[in-house]
């Protein structure tokens, strides 16, 4: 058993390493970090460029650079950006921003998604079912950047109508905010609403679709019939026996939904000016900064694998058939 755990953990570490190496190598191959320097007008002297070149170890082979970088990571040093800032300094704050956004989006997405899905299934082919279906199709067909932008303008209109700023759409809190704890919380909340909605909407759409079909599967099941034959009313059988069983397949969906969440997070952070990992990634690509890109990739890989593991644990918790 410990052998199995160790093998599984080793595979996770290997996958993280391979994924990070992939990002690192691809970045190193395609990026031209000296481009900006070379493009300056007047052109900097060759010695400056050569110095930068040496500073970024661009003459060493990519695997060697990766090993050197990874060696630092093991000791908590994620290297520095092209401009020389240590990445580690910024990492904690940015990771925190992203994690807050993801956690809220996931919890809201699952909770509302499951509710909407169950309601749709039970009231199949009723107006509410059609409305929910249409909503999720519409959301799943609209790119996050469009949803985000629309929400932003919605917020703007709302503020105009209210005559004051009800909902903020830039940043996590008002810069230089002064006030008590409650006021600070209110300020944060009014910053939180739109980005959280932007990220949760697609999660709600996804989970509600799957919960609906899982619930429909259960509706025709033999054990539900048995429960009714025992004397439970249809409604009671549905909630006690149906819903509990229909939640099981949601556990596997969780890992998949998470991948969607991360991509959505990139857009959301950018649009609403949250300085999280996604925002950093885009910045890294635009700056041709391999270290930033590799760091974000490692962060994402760890999160994805963690969500995969969590999804397995959830599955086992929900389904006695596969418990240990």
């Amino acid at each position: 058993m410990t052998g199995f755990l160790a093998r599984r953990l080793a595979n996770y570490v290997l996958l993280c390493l391979a994924a990070t190496f992939l990002a690192f190598a691809l970045g190193s191959l395609t990026f031209s970090p000296l481009g900006q320097l070379q493009g300056r007008n007047p052109a900097p002297p060759a010695s400056v460029i050569a110095a930068k070149r040496a500073e970024l170890h661009l003459d060493e082979p990519i695997p060697a650079r990766f090993v050197a970088w990874m060696g630092g990571v093991v000791h908590g040093d994620f290297g520095s950006t092209i401009t020389g800032q240590p990445i580690t300094d910024e990492l904690g704050a940015r990771a925190g921003v992203s994690l807050r956004l993801f956690a809220l989006g996931t919890v809201l997405g699952i909770a509302v998604g499951v509710l909407v899905g169950v309601a749709s299934a039970i009231r199949q082919y009723k107006a509410s079912d059609y409305a929910a279906t249409l909503f999720s199709f519409l959301v799943l067909s609209t790119p996050v950047f469009l949803i985000g932008t629309l929400l932003k303008f919605g917020g703007l209109r709302l503020n105009e109508a209210a005559g004051s700023t009800v909902l903020y759409y830039t940043g996590e809190f008002s810069p230089g905010f002064q006030g008590g704890w409650w006021a600070a919380l209110a300020d944060r909340l009014s910053h939180l609403v739109l980005p959280t909605l932007a990220i949760a909407l697609s999660q709600i759409a996804l989970y509600s679709r799957y919960q609906r079909s899982a619930m429909l599967d259960v509706l025709g099941s033999d054990f539900l019939r048995t429960a009714q034959a025992k004397g439970l009313t249809r409604r009671r059988a549905l909630f006690k026996h149906g819903l509990r069983t229909a939640l099981i397949p949601m556990a596997t969906l969780f890992a998949f939904g998470f991948g969607l969440l991360i991509t959505g997070g990139v857009f959301t952070e950018r649009i609403f000016g949250w300085y999280g990992m996604g925002d950093w990634f885009i910045y890294g690509v635009q700056q041709n900064d391999t270290n930033i890109v590799a760091t974000v990739t490692l962060f994402v890989a760890v999160l994805v694998l963690f969500s995969g593991w969590l999804s397995d644990v959830l599955y086992a918790a929900l389904d006695p058939r596969i418990r240990l």
Binding site: F223, R225, T226, G231, L232, I248, L318, D319
Partner: peptide, 18 residues
């Protein structure tokens, strides 16, 4: 379940798994 009760064909799927 009180006055009329029923026994089904497929016992493998007739009970709630959880």
């Amino acid at each position: 379940g009180r006055r009329i009760s029923m026994i089904f064909q497929d016992p493998l799927s007739a009970l709630t798994p959880v």
